[in-house]
């Protein structure tokens, strides 16, 4: 029962032409700059817009195959979390979540029971009677997620689900969303322009530019071998799993990093390649994170050179061409990598 979509939509000067497959239980992130066609793709999958050509099907169910077949949104088993959630303001949180089951013919009492259970799942049991306007951004996002999942859809579409949140709420909600997505047996398509959301939440990235797929693959694969400058910049992020104990994080892949904010338990640590400094010898003084690395590869980008470094941990570093010349960087060169604790973001991985 894989989602198989061949989305071809032509409108005015814009043409979208992408192929997407999402297996049950899989989270695929559709990543791209503004205007790349992400929202168009979501609307076509949700049944809010027609395809010009191609098809959308889940297993044997054909949802759209022009010119003959078009199943409208209300008859597709989809759940959508919209960027600004679009919660119904005249209904309580509970009634918002119960709306889907009610619309699909579930008796009122049972719909409410289901809705209550989902609100409890997202940790909002005590806000069942609240109007959406009185909820915080994070709470509204969780109501929207519950509303989308309560009908047990075959396909879950998340359209920039974290974009409306402030930075601190975002970290927390992202970890929580990841937990709910792991429990969800259906197919999830996460649309985002934030690489961190995509890398943390998705099993596979599909990156589109100007209506076309430019690269797809698992996050680590895409990060290791970005095909375009845009992707290199987008996913050029060092992301590691580890276990935190205070300010020390033992990385799953070997090595340890000292971070600024104390944490406990399983975490992700992330830092930009520009934060990694390179030295020919072990630097004097006591930078907190210093470890030996070997150059594994070099990649020329517009104004910087991305250096692939093997070590514990293996990381990416962005340096200027002048540094490359000065340090005579070439595959096999032995160096010391230095990273400030304050450059590292740490967040719980639920």
């Amino acid at each position: 029962m894989t989602l198989d979509a061949d989305l071809r939509i032509t409108r005015d000067a814009f043409a979208l032409d992408i192929r997407l497959t999402v297996r049950p239980g899989e989270v695929v992130a559709l990543l791209g700059p503004n205007g790349a066609g992400k929202t168009t793709a979501v609307r076509a999958l949700a049944g809010l817009d027609h395809l010009s050509a191609g098809h959308v099907r889940v297993g044997d169910h054909v949802w759209d195959r022009p010119p003959k077949v078009f199943v409208p949104a209300e008859r597709r088993a989809v759940g959508v979390v919209f960027q600004d959630y679009l919660l119904f303001n005249h209904l309580s949180a509970l009634e918002n979540v119960a709306f889907g089951p009610r619309a699909r013919g579930v008796p009122r009492a049972r719909a409410r029971t289901q809705a209550r259970a989902w609100l409890a799942t997202v940790g909002l049991a005590e806000h069942a009677g609240a109007r959406p306007r009185t909820l915080s951004g994070g709470q509204a996002q969780r109501v929207a997620l519950a509303r989308a999942l309560v009908t047990q859809p075959d396909l879950l579409l998340l359209d920039e689900p974290l974009a409306a949140l402030d930075a601190s709420t975002r970290l927390h909600i992202r970890a929580e969303l990841g937990r709910h997505l792991r429990d969800y047996p259906g197919r999830t398509l996460l649309v985002t322009h934030d690489p961190l959301d995509a890398m943390v939440l998705a099993d596979r990235l599909v990156i589109i530019e100007a209506g076309r797929v430019v690269q797809e693959g698992p996050p680590t694969e895409v990060a290791r071998r970005p095909r375009t400058d845009y992707i290199a910049h987008l996913v050029g992020l060092n992301l590691h799993k580890g276990t935190a104990d205070g300010t020390t994080v033992a990385l799953d892949g070997g090595g340890a990093l000292i971070v600024a904010e104390p944490a406990a338990g399983p975490v992700h640590v992330a830092f930009p390649p520009s934060a990694v400094g390179l030295y020919p010898r072990r630097p004097a003084g006591s930078p907190r994170n210093t470890w030996p690395v070997t150059v594994a590869g070099l990649e020329q980008h517009a104004h910087t050179v991305r250096v692939h470094l093997a070590g514990s941990p293996s990381v990416l570093a962005d340096v200027t061409p002048a540094v490359v010349a000065e340090l005579r960087l070439a595959p096999g060169t032995q160096l010391w990598a230095v990273l400030k604790a304050t450059e590292i973001q740490t967040y719980a991985r639920g």
């Binding site: 809010l48 209300e74 759940g79 619309a103």
Partner: peptide, 10 residues
């Protein structure tokens, strides 16, 4: 549109 994705008829 949100209501439509939740299964509500027009």
């Amino acid at each position: 549109e949100a209501a439509a994705t939740l299964g509500a008829s027009k």
